[in-house]
Amino acid sequence: MIGKDATWDQPGSLKVLADLVNGSSVDRRRFLAAGVALSVSAGNWSRAFEQKQLTGTSEPLPDGPAPFAYVDDRLDHLRHLDDQLGSGEVYRLARSELSLIVRLIKSGRYRGSTVSRLHALASEAVRQVAWSAFDQGRPSIAQRFFDGSLRASAEAGDPISGAYALSFAAIQCYSTPGQATRAISLQKTARDQVRTKATPRMHAMLAARTARALSKTGAKTECARELDTARTALDREHMTTTPRACIGSTTARSR
């Protein structure tokens, strides 16, 4: 798999992102290998955040300079254009955004929390490429990009973007026979990292996707419990006016 020898730090993550932009090291192995690789990536992502908690290096991310806002706006626009443009066009446009973000990171003009903000944007751009690749029936390529999204999330110190990526990676797993249990595990990893950070809406989305994975295994009682959790979270969302804390959560698909 791509990045198997890359460290989970800024140099390693930047190398993986640059390789994704350049289209090198394409992994053409079958879907099962992609599913296994996603579990490995999720485990590494979770451990990266555990290490950040031990060292106390996580900090709130700034909005960044004006160009960052333009990139963020374009990525948000792409989230709404999937159905109109099709996954092929989103794949191309999101990769273009990723290319710009990588260039900004490599420029050396940004430091500290500002470059962390760039990694958070990269995580979302790569997530969009990954989902588009899967939607086009290219699961191994999707896995590579999901791995890149998780790496960028960890480098940014932003578990929300990584958990969002994992929720889509879980769809990749539960959409294939024999991989539903792996999807449940991915969702648990995501939920553990954002338990006290995500909005009720994001908690509802994660619970709903966990329920979908459980339905594939025939675990009816557990599935119903997760659906109830999702409903409760949505009720809580409706009772509050908390700003959204999940990238793309209002447009998250409930597949």
Score class of each variant (00 low, 15 high):
Met1Tyr: 13
Ile2Ser: 10
Asp5Leu: 15
Thr7Lys: 05
Gln10Gly: 09
Gln10Arg: 15
Val16Gln: 04
Leu17Val: 01
Leu20Phe: 04
Val21Trp: 01
Ser25Phe: 14
Val26Glu: 05
Val36Arg: 13
Val36Asn: 11
Ser39Met: 14
Val40Trp: 03
Gly43Leu: 11
Gly43His: 04
Asn44Asp: 10
Leu54Thr: 08
Thr55Phe: 15
Thr57Gly: 02
Thr57Tyr: 00
Glu59Ser: 07
Gly64Lys: 03
Pro65Cys: 12
Tyr70Ile: 07
Val71Glu: 06
Asp83Ser: 12
Leu85Cys: 04
Ser87Asp: 13
Gly88Asn: 12
Leu98Trp: 04
Ser99Ala: 06
Ser107Lys: 06
Gly112Trp: 00
Leu118Met: 05
Ala120Val: 04
Ala120Gly: 02
Ala120Tyr: 07
Leu121Ile: 06
Ala122His: 00
Ser123Asn: 03
Glu124Ile: 10
Ala125Trp: 00
Asp135Trp: 00
Phe145Arg: 04
Phe146Asn: 03
Arg151Asp: 09
Ser153Ile: 04
Ala154Val: 13
Gly157Cys: 07
Pro159Arg: 05
Pro159Asp: 08
Ser161Gln: 07
Ser161Glu: 10
Leu166Ser: 12
Cys173Gly: 01
Tyr174Phe: 10
Gly178Tyr: 06
Gly178Ser: 06
Thr189Gly: 03
Arg191Ala: 13
Arg195Thr: 15
Thr196Glu: 11
Met205Ser: 08
Ala207Lys: 00
Ala208Asp: 04
Arg209Val: 03
Leu214Trp: 04
Lys220Gly: 07
Lys220Arg: 13
Glu222Cys: 11
Glu222Arg: 15
Cys223Thr: 15
Ala224Thr: 02
Leu227Gly: 02
Thr229Lys: 10
Arg231Asn: 13
Thr232Val: 15
Thr232Phe: 08
Leu234Asp: 06
Ala245Met: 09
Cys246Ala: 08
Thr251Ala: 09
Arg255Gly: 11
